[in-house]
């Protein structure tokens, strides 16, 4: 869980297909992301071992051909656990981003369209949510409503709302004064219709970039919550909890902590690169500076 470092400029019309493949960040990032997603999807059909069957006698094995990443403290195959864990991470992060977008974007657009009191109240509400340290609040929420994937999603999702509201509002505010909007208004279109038909398409790129970043943050947040035992619950594996369980066994089996950690790093790295790449492609001004 961390801070989005960049304030976004209004992007010009997207024309990224041309340059997409030549942008290094985008190419690497999308490859990694696709790979992780493929791994998660594959786990629905096939994993090397069935992780619901425990063979405690095989516990804490090192790396071998049979178990490329070794086995955990209950004798489960770590590669299989990581594959299924990817599912969990991705699902939690996607839904959390979905909540953030689903609630935040309409709010942001509404604030930008109406201005005045609505805008003021909404932004103060944003400040209020931002004033709560996100991780602490997520811990509170999961501790109150019980640990589990669903509550982790909600906890992470809530804190995505003001992020998207802010981005959508900023984006929308910069679109509103433009001429084609004025034309639409002159043609008698209502604010709602304009928001949906003209504003939204113009800020989609912005939201996409922010979405990628929040996705990556969501994966980190989920890992943190799981590490504290507040995320997905057994028998569903999660990367964060695998790290927690590995921690006590690091002197006997360091590989236990290695692979789930790497899985998180690689996934987050992939998404961040993808986000950077997208921004470069969508925001020509920044690209010029590279």
């Amino acid at each position: 869980m961390s801070i989005d470092p960049t304030l976004h400029e209004n992007p010009d019309e997207p024309h990224f297909l041309k340059t997409a493949l030549t942008d290094r960040s985008f190419a690497i990032g999308s490859c990694i992301t696709l790979l992780i997603a493929a791994m998660a999807l594959l786990s629905f059909l096939w994993t090397p071992y069935d992780i619901t069957v425990l063979t405690v006698a095989d516990k804490l094995q090192g790396l071998s051909l049979a178990h490329p990443f070794g086995t955990d403290h209950l004798g489960r195959d770590i590669l299989s656990m990581i594959m299924i864990g990817a599912r969990n991470s991705i699902a939690v992060a996607i839904v959390a981003v979905g909540i953030g977008m689903g609630v935040g974007v309409p709010l942001g657009c509404w604030a930008a369209a109406r201005g005045g009191l609505v805008d003021e109240v909404l932004m103060r509400f944003n400040d209020l949510v931002f004033a709560f340290p996100a991780l602490l609040s997520a811990i509170m929420i999961t501790a109150i409503f019980g640990p589990g994937a669903v509550n982790a999603i909600i906890a992470i999702g809530i804190f995505n709302v003001p992020v998207f509201a802010r981005v959508a509002r900023a984006g929308a505010l910069s679109v509103w004064p433009r001429e084609f909007i004025l034309a639409a208004r002159a043609a008698g279109k209502g604010k709602f219709l304009i928001s949906v038909e003209h504003i939204l398409p113009n800020i989609v790129a912005l939201l996409l970039v922010q979405g990628t970043i929040q996705f990556a943050l969501g994966i980190l947040a989920e890992a943190g919550l799981s590490y504290l035992g507040l995320g997905a619950q057994p028998p569903m594996p999660s990367w964060g909890r695998m790290l927690f369980e590995a921690q006590t066994r690091m002197i006997v089996a360091p590989h236990l902590a290695l692979f789930p950690g790497l899985a998180i790093v690689v996934t987050v790295l992939g998404l961040n690169l993808l986000g950077d790449g997208l921004r470069d492609l969508l925001d020509p001004r920044l690209r010029r500076e590279r």
Partner: peptide
């Protein structure tokens, strides 16, 4: 001691 699997070590 909460030691778990590190006991052997």
């Amino acid at each position: 001691m909460p030691v778990g699997d590190a006991l052997s070590q």
